[in-house]
Amino acid sequence: DYFTVDMEKGAKGFGFSIRGGREYKMDLYVLRLAEDGPAIRNGRMRVGDQIIEINGESTRDMTHARAIELIKSGGRRVRLLLKR
């Protein structure tokens, strides 16, 4: 199942961390959800969800650093296409 999650940044960021990336020879996944962060309050994202797109850009062969950069580059908002 594919689904989109739109979030607005909180005081401590978006409230999730990721693992994976090209340099680890793996796809990008949601690693952790911060307690009471925007990701957990949104209610749609879960640990283990695969991140397919960040702000419309495919994560295929994307490095971990580039993924972080893209998440931050959207300013106060981020849109993720996830797969569960």
Score class of each variant (00 low, 15 high):
R44T: 10
I51C: 03
T63A: 11
D61H: 11
D61G: 08
S73D: 13
K12I: 05
A67Q: 00
T4S: 03
R44F: 06
V30N: 01
R32I: 05
R46N: 14
A65Y: 10
E57T: 13
G21I: 02
I18L: 14
V78Q: 03
A34Y: 15
D49C: 02
L33M: 14
K9L: 15
D36H: 10
M45N: 01
L82M: 10
N55A: 04
M7G: 02
K25E: 13
G74M: 06
F3L: 06
I71L: 13
I68Y: 06
F14D: 02
R66D: 07
K12A: 12
R46M: 11
Q50I: 10
N42T: 13
R22E: 15
T59C: 09
G74H: 14
G21V: 02
I51W: 01
I51F: 09
E57F: 15
G15T: 02
R41E: 10
A67K: 00
S73H: 06
G37V: 09
L82F: 04
R41I: 12
G43M: 06
G75D: 14
R76M: 11
E69S: 11
M7Q: 04
I68A: 13
G10N: 15
S17V: 10
K72N: 14
K72V: 12
F16I: 05
K72S: 13
Y29N: 07
K25S: 10
G37Y: 05
I18A: 02
S17A: 13
F3V: 08
I52Q: 08
V5K: 01
G37N: 10
G13T: 05
R19H: 14
R66P: 00
R77H: 12
R84F: 02
Y24M: 14
I18M: 14
G43I: 05
R32S: 14
D49P: 01
Y2H: 03
L81V: 14
S17M: 07
G20R: 01
R84P: 15
G75M: 06
R76A: 13
I54A: 01
S17T: 13
A67I: 03
M62G: 04
L80F: 05
R84T: 14
Y29S: 12
S73Y: 09
G10E: 05
G15R: 01
F14R: 02
D6L: 07
R22L: 06
N55Y: 02
E57R: 12
R46Q: 12
G20E: 04
Q50D: 04
G74F: 03
R22G: 10
P38V: 13
I51Y: 00
K9C: 05
G43H: 06
V30C: 06
K72P: 03
S73P: 02
P38H: 07
I71W: 01
G48A: 06
Y24F: 07
T63C: 08
R84W: 03
I68W: 15
V5W: 04
G13P: 02
F16R: 00
I68C: 07
A67Y: 02
H64C: 09
R79H: 15
G43F: 05
G21N: 03
M26E: 15
G75N: 14
S58R: 09
G15Q: 03
Q50N: 10
G10D: 13
G75T: 12
R66C: 11
M62H: 03
L28E: 01
K72C: 15
D27C: 06
L33D: 03
E53A: 10
M45T: 03
L28D: 00
V47N: 15
E57C: 12
K83T: 12
M62I: 11
R19P: 00
R60L: 09
N42E: 11
D27R: 07
L70T: 10
L82I: 07
I68E: 10
R19L: 04
G13W: 02
K25I: 06
S17F: 08
G37S: 13
R76V: 12
L81F: 06
E57K: 13
A11L: 15
K9P: 07
D49F: 00
G75F: 03
R32G: 14
G56T: 07
R84G: 14
V47E: 13
M62L: 09
N42H: 11
R46D: 14
G56M: 05
I51L: 10
E69N: 11
A67G: 06
R41C: 08
G13N: 10
M45G: 02
S73W: 10
K25W: 08
K12T: 08
Y29P: 01
R79F: 06
R32P: 04
G21A: 02
D61Q: 06
V30S: 00
N42R: 07
A65S: 10
H64N: 14
G37T: 09
L82R: 00
D6S: 13
R32H: 11
R84A: 11
E23G: 05
L28Q: 02
P38S: 13
R22T: 15
L31W: 12
M7I: 15
R77C: 11
G21M: 01
R79Y: 13
E35D: 13
G56L: 04
H64Y: 10
V5L: 09
D49V: 01
D27M: 08
R60Y: 11
G56Y: 06
G21R: 02
I18S: 01
D1V: 07
M7L: 13
D6A: 06
L81G: 15
